[in-house]
């Protein structure tokens, strides 16, 4: 999947992955896609709740080798 911006939050713990994600999101135009990578398992559910209450759209997410990847389209 293609992303307009990639946020590397690997190695960071709460709240930094979402702080970074939000900053990157603010820079995007509506319809653009952001990729977030995090190794913090705790922020996975937080990130899903955060996306749900914004008008962004979670396109895809998966875990591979301890890295959680999310693709989000800006609403």
């Amino acid at each position: 999947m293609k992303a307009d911006v990639i946020v590397d939050a690997k190695g960071l713990s709460c709240p930094m992955p979402i702080v970074r994600a939000k900053k990157a999101m603010d820079q995007l135009e509506s319809g653009q896609v952001k990729k977030l990578e995090t190794t913090d398992q705790g922020s996975v559910r937080d990130f899903q709740s955060w996306v749900k209450q914004t008008n962004h759209e979670l396109l895809n997410h998966f875990e591979e080798g301890g890295i959680y990847t999310f693709y989000v389209k800006k609403g």
Binding site: P15, K22, W50
Partner: peptide, 8 residues
């Protein structure tokens, strides 16, 4: 109140 609410 989730912490991410404070971001906005």
């Amino acid at each position: 109140i989730p912490y991410f609410d404070f971001l906005d």
